[in-house]
């Protein structure tokens, strides 16, 4: 459902992605690990359509209505409506918009995109309350400004709530585990596991093997200096934990 081919991308004048190739099929969970600054967040933002991240060569294709299309042809909101979801490494605070209003607007935007009827405020509030349980989030967070004053861990939990509400086909989780305490990590990982399905592809970006104990990936990739230098199964993460990146970095 996602096919990245020899992707090169610049951030400003700097080439950050230097030929990434990666395919994700429905139902698969992939993990990307790699040193700080290797381009993991850049890759995730390029897929989501962050403005100013320029693809210089290669391409990112995504399956829409049974056909692979070039994602760069879609505006970021259209990508989201087609089922691409990015849980940000650093979720943005949006004062003045309540979490509930934000989720409602997003949910209805996706409905509109697919020609489905929008959900009323009342019905949606119930729907979200149900979804909040997946990440065991206190419903009071729904009436607060989006991420405003949320702790680091609460923000991450909120990202997974959004994922649960929007039910994307491809979910990219950028270091969702960092900042979570041990209990929260279990809860959030449990939430992600509940959202695992045969139709959904998941890309986990993480620094820690611990997350992969909870969410067992089908594939593990090591990204270094803008390239995937090694791919393997879940045992690769264990090796990495033992040996560090040095063994894999060219």
């Amino acid at each position: 459902m996602l096919k990245i081919t020899n992707l090169h991308a610049n951030v400003g004048d700097k080439e950050v992605l230097k030929g990434v190739t990666l395919t994700i099929n429905p139902g698969e969970v992939h993990a990307i690990m790699g040193p700080n600054g290797s381009g993991k967040s850049t890759l995730s933002k390029v897929i989501a359509g962050y403005p100013g991240y320029e693809i210089t060569s290669g391409k990112v294709e995504f399956e829409v209505n049974g056909k692979m299309i070039d994602l760069s042809e879609l505006e970021p909101e259209a990508r989201a409506c087609e089922g691409v979801f990015l849980a940000f490494q650093y979720p943005v605070e949006v004062p003045g918009i309540t979490n509930l209003a934000f989720l409602h607007a997003a949910f209805n935007a996706v409905c509109r995109h697919h020609g489905a009827p929008e959900m009323s405020e009342e019905k949606f509030a119930k729907f979200v309350a149900e979804k909040s349980k997946i990440v065991e989030m206190d419903p009071r967070f729904l009436d607060r400004g989006v991420n405003v004053g949320f702790s680091g861990g609460e923000k991450k939990r909120n990202e997974i709530l959004q994922m649960a509400v929007l039910s994307p086909r491809l979910a990219i989780l950028d270091e969702t585990d960092s900042g979570l305490d041990i209990d929260a990590l279990k809860i959030v990982a449990g939430g992600v596991n509940k959202l695992r399905s045969a139709e959904r592809g998941i890309l986990l970006i993480t620094h820690y093997q611990r997350l992969l104990d909870f969410i067992k990936p089908d594939f593990v990739h090591i990204l270094s200096a803008g390239q995937i230098v090694k791919s393997g199964n879940s045992s690769l993460a264990l090796e990495l934990e033992k040996e560090g990146y040095n063994a894999y970095i060219r």
């Binding site: 989501a48 359509g49 962050y50 403005p51 505006e75 970021p76 909101e77 990508r79 989201a80 409506c81 979801f85 990015l86 940000f88 979720p91 943005v92 949006v94 004062p95 003045g96 918009i97 209003a101 934000f102 607007a105 997003a106 935007a109 996706v110 995109h113 400004g145 989006v146 959004q162 929007l166």
Partner: peptide
């Protein structure tokens, strides 16, 4: 902030409207 809303499916104009109103609603 605009991108955050867009990345959730909210179109650019609606995002601006929501953020502008949000500024006041804050």
């Amino acid at each position: 902030e605009i991108f955050y809303l867009e990345s959730r499916g909210i179109g650019r104009d609606e995002a601006k409207l929501m953020l502008g109103r949000g500024y006041i609603l804050d």
